[in-house]
């Protein structure tokens, strides 16, 4: 069979539509994951025994199971268990939220705890309440240390969206597969899909480099 790159152009609008869905799921999922992960991470770092235990169980549950199983659970098992029905798109976004949230929680915890105790004590010794010490002193320092590992997690989550092929979400990988099924142009289509992923992850990497450069790690 001859390789014919013109099919890529023919199917590009469809592939771009898939890429758009991938980006959409990633962004919504990561925004939610950042919120959930920050809360869980701070619970781990500063919560009392109970908050800490709740966050710990959540994180270990998620880190200990594959994301495909998590999305299958949300999409197929939750309706049976709790009569909660979500569409594939919702399940996909929620999976990223819950999955990325667990990894981000560990990143957040690590970054906050890496800031020396002496700085918090210096803040407390001035007569500041603990929350102000976290917001004005530890937070800004921890934030700078968050960026590199967060960048990694963003890239992992973006690629994880390809697993939602299992619940039929029309993201980029699924789109590639559908096109494949109709024309069997494996080399051309999968090359195009791979390149589109590389462009997305590349753009993300570049963006993070810029942010990292602008914020010196102290």
């Amino acid at each position: 069979m001859e390789i014919d790159w013109s099919v890529v152009i023919t199917y590009m609008p469809q592939l771009l539509q898939g890429a758009k869905t991938t980006i959409y799921i990633t962004i919504l999922g990561l925004v939610g994951g950042l919120v959930l992960g920050s809360i869980a991470g701070l619970m781990r770092a500063y919560g009392g025994r109970i908050l800490n235990a709740i966050a710990f169980v959540y994180i270990e549950l998620i880190r200990g199971t594959p994301i495909v199983v998590q999305v299958m659970f949300l999409y197929f098992a939750l309706p049976v268990l709790a009569d909660i029905r979500i569409d594939p798109m919702g399940a996909a976004v929620l999976s990223i939220v819950v999955n990325a949230g667990a990894y981000i929680a560990e990143i957040v915890r690590g970054a906050f705890l890496s800031i020396g105790k002496g700085l918090s004590e210096a803040g407390l010794a001035l007569g500041l309440p603990r929350w102000k010490v976290l917001v004005y002193i530890v937070g800004p320092l921890a934030f700078r240390r968050l960026i590199p590992p967060l960048g990694n997690q963003f890239i992992v989550s973006l690629k994880d969206t390809s697993l939602f092929i299992v619940i039929g979400v029309a993201e980029l990988t699924r789109t590639g597969q559908e096109i494949m099924a109709s024309n069997f142009r494996a080399v051309e289509i999968w090359t195009a899909v791979a390149v589109l992923y590389l462009i997305m992850t590349g753009a993300l990497t570049l963006l993070l480099r810029v942010v990292e450069k602008r914020m010196k790690i102290l």
Binding site: G116, G118, L119, E121, A122, G123, L124, A125, L126, G127, I137
Partner: peptide, 14 residues
Amino acid sequence: RQEAGMVFQQFNLF
């Protein structure tokens, strides 16, 4: 703490 200021061995400047 506002009445008792503290200076640390390691400075602990922000």
